[in-house]
Design a protein around this nucleic acid. Structure first.
Lengths: 356, 356
DNA sequence: ACACAAATTGTGTGCGCACACACCATAATT
DNA sequence: AATTATGGTGTGTGCGCACACAATTTGTGT
């Protein structure tokens, strides 16, 4: 039955050498004579040896320290979801000696990133998971880790230049297009003004949000739907009086038909604004199944959510790192999660399925 | 570092007995004196022992035979997807001695189910995965397996009475409601006739499709959208001339606005019909990302697909069975997969993400 | 031809668990 | 009293791999 699986022992027998020699060839450690090398390689060439990962893991019995560098989860429930994905992954691997040390930086202060990143370096981890939401600040940081040979995985935002072991996220341009499609569909054939809203973001340093906006706009310029005027509002923090003022001005234009909000937290903020001013007739499309957003969707204030699955992103990130460290398994360079559409009628099905 | 994990050896030491005794207590095999039992139990009570599954699997080194009982994949690409999910799961576990033996029954002939099910019984598997699409025929079948203590997992269609180890599928009532919501949305505020189509189905014996229809209808009766008339067409096989006739008659009514098709294969059939008669203005909502359906969606004939993820359903089914057999891990009794909405703009993101 | 170093190769051990087996008491049987 | 059950307990081994170390062969210099 089980004799189909080829063990190192079998290879050794076939090649007429000892297991030690085969081991040296496989891991190219120690020196092996040309003669032996040839024999082993020819056997390896003919058969498809796949090491038993179970046995490998058992034998290794090392412990691994992974650092997770993400925005402070207390500042934004979106990042709290990411955090919970990290926790879930850690729980799964804890007994195999994997620990995850979280490091938080201030979502609204780029300088804290550099500072906290330094602490990550000092902690000397075996692997790193990063959400590099600040473009410029992250670049130098990765050079160090590449030199040291410490694998790092990016999620949420991709920075192609840094060539991570793996990136987990979504196609943000397409995400914007999808938002536009849903918006278009929600308009019942009527025309008017649609707005893209960013709240409290430094757009110049966050490429990802600009991508969404681009997708949203290009959908409308690609399709025959020229009856819509698309505006962009780059709003301040909602504490700032200008937030209320600018948004009110937009809403008071009676041609306003819909709002597309670029982040999850901002979605909840805008939803609460619409509810307060009794304007749930304005279609609202935003991001992610935060508790607040779920409530607003149930009440009919939010029409669609695009799920970015922050929990799953982080979960997969840790998993890929562990897979690399323990099982020597190469993760996909790009893992683009599907753009999940959440509406009133499939909301429950997503809520009940946890990380799926 | 790693000393946190408690091994059997540690328990033995703490209890002042040998590992053999602890092993006997844990698996209640062999006899143990009251004295020793008490000592071991008190230790187990104070600490949280979690066996190292890696080591357990390695040591066991048994081989497991799983039977998969599904409709013939050649009859329907939907079931071909399921099959590929099974294959994928098998590939993942093959080296740990798991083999999956597929058994196919005729999708359009209930009698073959009973017959093939008998062959499954004879093959004496260690676990079974079943897609019980025929309600009545499956019931007696499971009694036997329950008696024999062979775990079975259901997917696609649930039959509550048989109490499987696990069920993997979707909430079909909600699925119908979602179809209705998407249909409603696609209507641009215009009213008219909407039809629910079943193709080549014995509705009396397939509860699952009736559930979808119920959901679809109740959405419209629940919402203020009374402007729509909902019809049901139970069509024959498309080879049969009456298929073309009935459908043509429906389409020729100029108040027709949309079609909701209850299965994946039927979606492709109806799409090709609409294309042939140049009626892609009629909104079409159906199921699953079959290749044909993907093509029709790209061409704009199909407006929305609800993804039932047949591949993932079967994949998870095998995985849960293996988890139970090898790792002694209890799967969730009900794993309801999310109702995924596929539209033109997020189609690619789903295609590129494989089983996610 | 010898000693000794270097290169190469083989053997042994542990990882944690499950299970087979051997052992030792004591009780039951002849 | 000698023998055999019997309940209770401990020890030993293998699963496949990685790695340390021992053993062996080959090479170098004198």
């Amino acid at each position: 039955m089980n004799t189909k699986n080829i063990r190192i022992k079998d290879i050794a027998q076939l090649a007429g050498v000892s297991v030690g020699t085969v081991d040296r060839v496989l891991h190219n450690r120690g020196r092996v004579s040309d003669d032996a090398l040839k024999k082993v390689l020819s056997v390896l060439d003919q058969i498809d040896y796949k090491p038993n990962l179970i046995a490998r893991t058992l034998g290794a019995n090392k412990s691994y320290k992974i650092a997770a560098l993400i925005p402070n989860p207390d500042q934004d429930p979106y990042w709290a979801s990411s955090k919970s994905g990290i926790n879930q992954a850690e729980a799964e691997w804890l007994r195999y000696g994997v620990t995850v040390q979280p490091f938080f930086f201030n979502l609204y202060d780029k300088n804290t990133f550099t500072e906290v990143a330094k602490r990550v370096t000092d902690s000397n981890p075996d692997g790193i998971l990063v959400a590099p939401i600040f473009y410029h600040e992250t670049l130098p940081f990765f050079d160090e880790f590449r030199e040291r040979g410490i694998p790092y995985v990016l999620f949420n935002t991709n920075i192609h230049e840094v060539q991570p072991l793996s990136f987990i996220g979504q196609d943000l341009y397409q995400s914007g297009r999808l938002g536009a499609e849903l918006m278009h569909l929600s308009q019942n054939g009527k025309a008017g003004i649609l707005a893209v809203l960013h709240v409290n973001e430094d757009l110049s340093n966050s490429v990802h949000l600009a991508e969404k906006e681009k997708g949203f706009r290009e959908y409308f310029s690609d399709t025959r739907a020229k009856a819509f005027e698309i505006r962009t509002l780059n709003l301040t923090s909602p504490n700032n009086p200008s937030f209320e003022k600018e948004l009110l001005q937009l809403i008071n234009d009676d041609r306003i038909r819909g709002l597309f909000v670029s982040t999850s937290k901002a979605t909840a903020i805008v939803a609460s604004f619409l509810e307060k001013h009794n304007r749930s007739d304005v279609k609202l499309i935003g991001y992610d199944m935060l508790e607040e957003n779920i409530a607003f969707m149930k009440k009919g204030v939010i029409d669609f959510l695009i799920n970015q699955n922050p929990k799953r992103q982080a979960f997969l990130g840790i998993n890929h790192l562990v897979g690399q460290l323990i099982l020597h398994k190469n993760p996909p360079a790009n893992e683009l999660l599907p753009l999940e559409i959440i509406s009133r009628e499939n909301l429950a099905s997503y809520l009940s399925s946890g990380i799926h």
